[in-house]
Amino acid sequence: MAVATMTAGEAYAAISSGAAIAGARVEGVLDFSVQSGRPWPSHFPEDLEVDVLNVAGQPIESLPRGLKTYELDLRDTPIVRLPDGLEVRSRLDLTGCDRLESLPAELTVGTLILRGCVALQAISEHLSVWFLDLSECWAFERWPQNATIRGGRLQLRGCTALRELPPYITRLSALNVRECPNLRSLPPDLVVTGWIDLAHSGLTDEEMLPVGVASAQLRWAGVNVDRRIAFHPEEIRIDELLEERNAERRRVLLDRYGYGRFLQDAAAELLDADVDPGGPRQLLRVKLPDDEDLVAMSCFCPSTSRQYIIRVPPQTPTCRHAAAWIAGFDDPNDYRPLIET
């Protein structure tokens, strides 16, 4: 029996009228995203094949059975799980699906984007992808026993619960483990042919990098760095930092040098000082060549007595203004905490 083929326009009309088009093939983009203004139909046809289906932002919690697409956009939907048998050949985007708990087993897709899926703790068995983005999946901690990541880019930024990479990941074009503090080792057979971003990860010593990663370009927060900056920040000199003309590279040098150490070694100017429940506060400034002034507030946590150095906008005039800005207030008169912990 021949499969009925229709345009996106014909599909819109048929779906809105309730016509039976189950099993049909839709050519082009079927756009039911919130931005399109079209409501998600109460009865979406099953066994539908669509080139591109966009339902971004719709309040849907499930998908129809038998769906086949080339690209599927589910960004910012409250979907909890995807149906078994779902077929997405090229790109599946689940960015911001903060209720997503599981993926179908044996999912095969070119690019899988799970950025910000904060409820996702594990991915499915026998997953097969080229490019995988798990950025800001805070709860993610369990890899499947069997899966294939075919040498593409693996984005893991902000996976704070992650402790390891599985041994079957052996070759990648790029690896981002920025802000993965509990990741303290990589598979011994891993080869990274492009770059690895290890800013604020648990990979704090170059001996932690396997031989196959040794020739990869190191990055710190997106900026190319050498091994000295990545692993030996104590060797960075204050004059080197102050004379650096590239703003992005200076930002990295500051991050590695440490704001507290920098303010002290650069003889920061005291702009303001007062006392809050945590103790003394200071607003300090260092003028930077060809860049805006670095202004930061030194303060102490009332509960732990731990000192914090927090950068604030360069035009900040007082500690009180700085504290308000840190708390999200533009007007310090609106910031009146009853108690600070």
Rank of each mutant, 00 (worst) to 15 (best):
S16W: 09
P104Q: 02
L254E: 04
V29L: 12
C97Y: 03
I123W: 03
M297I: 15
C97R: 00
P332F: 03
A139F: 04
W143R: 14
T108C: 14
F329R: 05
F131I: 13
V80R: 15
T111Q: 12
Q307F: 06
V3P: 03
E46K: 13
E71F: 15
L271N: 05
R75E: 13
R311G: 02
P83L: 04
F262H: 08
R99L: 12
L127E: 00
M1R: 08
V26F: 14
G28Q: 08
V29I: 12
T170M: 01
W325L: 10
F329T: 01
S17D: 11
S62Q: 07
E87S: 11
L209K: 12
Q145E: 09
L284H: 04
R178P: 04
P144A: 02
G66S: 01
R150Y: 12
V191P: 07
K68Y: 13
A24L: 02
L288P: 05
D133K: 05
G278H: 10
T341I: 15
F300N: 09
T7I: 05
L112R: 11
D334L: 13
D93V: 05
P59H: 12
Y257I: 14
A19W: 01
A323D: 06
R171W: 14
S102V: 09
D291N: 09
D226I: 09
W195N: 10
Q264V: 04
L114V: 12
L209A: 13
V191Y: 04
